[in-house]
């Protein structure tokens, strides 16, 4: 069996991802590395800095539509949220609230708050969250893409969940506490973070897709992410009591139905899927098999 070549999102750098998502040549970076907005804190720890503080932000077009985009660089300190890193994303979102592009696209690849800047990163992450909620109020949708090698955890996990829609590959991981953190705090019986299959079926793109937080599951192929993102651009739905009551009812029903499950396989079984097959299914196969 030969494989169809793929342009891996998982392996690409933040800049390669941005270039692959936007129309060729359309990207204009804001505060590019030449501007050298580095972390004012890492030096004190003797840690290396990056001229973009691990995040690329700017504007461009996607299928001709004007979009703003940011991309976390997992290869720099795990894509962690530091002061400057967070401020760039917040600034971009506030820019979008004023200028109203067709969408903001966020490429997440982050273990969460940068511990050397824990307070700045945590506060910064909530500034991003507020900015997302405000830009949505202005009608601009925020679309999150998950599939980087660092996953999307902690403050970034919550931030991405504030998006209007998420697109993920099966390689994506999304949760608040990372498996290593749960294992460290609660013990290996609570979560064996070395059991990679367990990690992925718990936090991975497929489980998130089957619950609906991820609306499109794609293969690890940048053009697939691009097509999915383009298809999801539509004005952000306003928050109303009715829409949030419906969201709440959906989340409560999930607890009623699956709250006693201790393994994703039990959930998939209950959903009527062949739980042993799910990990091996392609994005298209699982999309077809997903219960309505």
């Amino acid at each position: 069996m030969k494989l169809t070549p793929r342009i891996s999102f998982y392996e690409a750098s933040a800049r390669q991802r941005v270039a692959g998502i936007l129309d060729p040549g359309s990207f204009r970076e804001i505060l590019p590395p030449t501007e050298q907005r580095i972390s004012p804190h890492l030096g004190m720890f003797g840690a290396p800095v990056a001229f973009d503080d691990g995040v690329v932000a700017g504007e461009g077009t996607l299928d001709g539509k004007e979009v703003y985009i940011f991309a976390q660089e997992g290869k720099f300190r795990g894509g962690s949220l530091g002061e400057v890193h967070a401020a760039k994303i917040t600034g971009l979102l506030r820019r979008a609230a004023i200028r109203k592009p067709a969408a903001v696209i966020g490429l997440f690849d982050s273990g969460g708050v940068r511990l050397e800047e824990a307070n700045a990163g945590e506060i910064g992450s909530t500034e991003i969250m507020r900015a997302i909620l405000e830009v949505q109020r202005a009608g601009v949708p925020v679309i999150g893409l998950l599939g980087g090698s660092c996953g999307c955890f902690g403050g970034s996990g919550i931030t991405s969940s504030c998006c209007d829609a998420l697109i993920a590959s099966e390689e994506a991981r999304l949760s608040v506490s990372g498996p290593e953190v749960i294992e460290t705090v609660m013990g290996v019986e609570a979560f064996d973070s070395h059991d990679r299959a367990l990690v992925w079926r718990t936090t991975g793109g497929k489980n998130r897709f089957l619950f609906g937080k991820v609306v499109t599951l794609v293969d690890d192929h940048i053009p697939a992410f691009r097509a999915a993102a383009s298809a999801l651009i539509k004005p952000s739905e306003p928050l109303t009591v009715a829409s949030l009551r419906a969201e709440r009812a959906r989340l409560a029903k999930r607890i009623d139905e699956y709250g006693s499950c201790t393994d994703a396989r039990q959930i998939w079984q209950k959903m009527g899927l062949d739980a042993d097959r799910v990990p091996d299914m392609t994005a298209a196969e699982l999309t077809a098999a997903k219960p309505a």
């Binding site: 390689e171 990679r196 367990l198 990690v199 992925w200 991975g204 990990p279």
Partner: peptide, 18 residues
């Protein structure tokens, strides 16, 4: 590698990320 094998290769849990 699993895809190349036509699904016949069944790697141990610790090598999976799916």
């Amino acid at each position: 590698l699993v895809r190349w094998s036509g699904g016949l290769y069944n790697p141990p849990s610790r090598f999976r990320n799916w």
